[in-house]
Simulated assay, not measured.
Amino acid sequence: MCSVAEELRSLGAQIAYNTPDPEHGVDCVKYIAHQHPYSNAAWNCYYKVITRLDDCFVNSAKRLFFNIARAYHLVGLVTLAAWHYDKVLAMHVKDYPIPKLPHEKPESVENRLPGYCDLRREAAFNLHLIYKKSGAVDLARQVLRDHCTF
C-alpha cells in the first residue's frame, strides 16, 4: 500500500514527464528512479525530464563525470580518473553570470572572473597532476596551458 507522499511523488513525476517545463517535478522523478534503480521505465522518465531542463543536463553530467573522476583519483585508479577528467574537459557549456545577493555591493560581484561555475579548470588541474606524477611533464604543461590560462 502506497502512502500519500508516495502517491504525490508519483503524480509529480507524471506531471514533470508530460509538461513542457519539468523543473518543478525533477525531485519527484529523481526519487522514483532512486526507489526503482532497476526499472527501465523509471530511468527513461528520468532522462526524458532531465534532458528538457535548460542546460542542467549538461551541467549535471559534467558534475557527475567530475565526481566520478575525483573518486577514482582518490583511490588511485588514475587511468579511469584521467578518462573521466577528459570527458569533463570535452563538455562545453555556457557560463552563467554570478548572482548578486541583496546585501552585496554591485561592484564586488562584477570584478570576478568568468567561469566560476565551470568544472573544467578543476578537472584540468587534477588531470595535470596525474600526468605530472606519471612522468608526462610536457603533457601536464599542455593541459594547464590549454585549460587553465586566460
Rank of each mutant, 00 (worst) to 15 (best):
A16V: 00
H103P: 02
L129G: 04
H73N: 15
L119I: 12
V109P: 13
W43I: 04
P97V: 04
L113P: 11
H24A: 03
V88A: 06
D27M: 09
Y17T: 02
C45D: 03
N18F: 13
V93R: 12
H34F: 03
A61L: 15
C56P: 15
G25S: 05
A16M: 05
F57P: 06
S10G: 07
K48E: 09
P20T: 03
P102V: 08
H103F: 12
I130D: 03
V49Q: 04
Y85P: 11
M91Q: 09
R145N: 08
K94A: 15
P102H: 14
H128P: 05
D54C: 12
R63E: 11
K87T: 11
E122D: 10
I50K: 06
A41V: 09
Y72S: 02
N18W: 13
F150Y: 10
A140I: 02
I68C: 11
S3Y: 06
A140Q: 02
C2P: 13
S134E: 14
S60F: 09
K94N: 13
D54G: 02
L89S: 01
N111Y: 15
P37V: 11
Y31M: 01
G115R: 09
Y131K: 05
G135P: 11
D146T: 10
T19C: 03
E107S: 12
V58M: 09
D118A: 04
L129S: 01
A16P: 00
A136E: 12
P99Q: 14
L139T: 15
L119E: 10
H34N: 00
I15Y: 10
R52T: 00
A136S: 08
K94H: 13
D146Q: 10
I68Q: 05
V88T: 05
